[in-house]
């Protein structure tokens, strides 16, 4: 038990110490970091512009001269488009999750904190939103707001806060039953201070987990919208767009969808493993504890 002394004991520090020991999760985090770096440096790394067409050099196979991953049906460099599509995916993924989390935090915390009628109304509203299946609401919003990145971010964010709000509310309600909340009230701590200074820090773990699972879901929604023809307007590349465009030629040129598919899949796995690592580290999930 003497090694216990060396482990930092703050909530975050403790979680991080445990997270670090999970190699898969740590590797995934490094991978995501790398992806972010690539996305930021896209103009430096991409050999061509994502929109530059070369109708004489269409459907070039991978490893052709100057085109690492070949070219697509319009003769655009697949590698460059892939790098730029990472921008689309990550930007929309992170930003949409931020929107969703903000809405969810406000509604979830407010409902749980206030209780009574406010809670009933807020949760009733949440229940109604829940009746819009899956990505339907996002589709509706994009139809209304158009296909700019901003409106896609807002659409996905607004369509996916519901579950997170429920999770946050449940978490806050759980923490509220802990005896220390009553102890704080008996000391004279104000309700707001209890919520922000004491309940929130105890919900940090679950919040991180929620976020790390929310980002890939937002990316899935973004690509899904592109598959429906409702993603970012061409020629801006996105995984969904590349997939649906390439799919037309899949029998002759399967490499066109293999590249985005691989990157997409790896990104999803990385986020999931990070989320899993966080869940174990903060001991929050439904998973077993020994």
């Amino acid at each position: 038990m003497s090694e216990l002394q060396h482990i930092p004991q703050g909530e975050l520090g403790r979680g991080w110490a445990r997270f670090k020991r999970n190699r898969l999760a740590l590797g995934s985090l490094v991978f995501v970091g790398l992806l972010v770096a690539v996305a930021l440096a896209a103009p430096l790394l991409a050999p061509y512009s994502y929109a530059e067409q070369d109708l004489t050099g269409r459907f070039l196979p991978p490893l052709s001269d100057g085109h690492l991953l070949g070219t697509d049906e319009l003769g655009r460099d697949v590698f460059s488009r892939l790098i730029y599509s990472l921008r689309t995916a990550l930007l929309i993924g992170f930003a949409a999750e931020l929107v969703a989390l903000a809405v969810a935090l406000v509604i979830g915390m407010w409902a749980a904190y206030q209780g009574g009628r406010v809670e009933q109304w807020l949760m009733g509203f949440t229940d109604i939103m829940y009746a819009f299946p899956n990505y339907l609401f996002a589709v509706l919003l994009v139809v209304i707001m158009g296909r700019s990145p901003l409106s896609i971010i807002v659409a996905i964010g607004i369509a996916s806060w519901v579950n997170q709000a429920r999770l946050i509310r449940a978490q806050v309600l759980k923490i509220k039953t802990f005896e220390f909340v009553e102890a704080l009230r008996s000391i004279g701590t104000s309700g707001f201070s209890i919520a922000v200074r004491h309940i929130l820090p105890n919900a940090v773990g679950p919040l991180l987990v929620t976020t790390s699972f929310g980002i890939p879901l937002a990316i899935i929604a973004e690509s899904g919208l592109a598959i429906l023809g409702l993603g970012v307007a061409p020629p801006t590349p996105s995984w969904g767009g590349m997939i649906i465009d390439g799919y037309t030629y899949v029998l002759g040129n399967p490499q066109l969808i293999v590249a985005p598919l691989t990157l997409f899949g790896l990104t999803m796995l990385a986020f999931t493993w990070i989320g899993d690592g966080l869940r174990d580290a903060f001991d929050t999930g439904e998973e077993d504890r020994a």
């Binding site: 703050g10 909530e11 802990f178 005896e179 220390f180 009553e182 102890a183 704080l184 008996s186 000391i187 004491h198 820090p201 105890n202």
Partner: peptide
């Protein structure tokens, strides 16, 4: 007026 609770761990701030 101050209070002491039944469950000491639960009543202390874990964080």
């Amino acid at each position: 007026v101050q209070m002491v609770f039944q469950n000491p761990y639960g009543s202390l701030l874990p964080h």
